[in-house]
Amino acid sequence: MNDAFIAQLVAEWNAARTRGGDEALEAVCTAIFLEDVFDLTLTDEQLQPAFLTETSALQTALQLQGRD
């Protein structure tokens, strides 16, 4: 899985989301998408808005799990 493909999927996800409401729940929603698509498991610490709403942080998480 290369960087361009990861960036494409993250961009598709971000384009489809409507922001607002419960940020913590939004982070859970994003985590479901990421874990499914990239076949990874995030820690509870990573299931946080500050982490999962940042594209760079997402890519870091993927790199940490060796998915890039």
Partner: peptide, 11 residues
Amino acid sequence: DSPVRARAVEL
């Protein structure tokens, strides 16, 4: 056992 993951049902 994760309370964060349990919130997924709210979605």
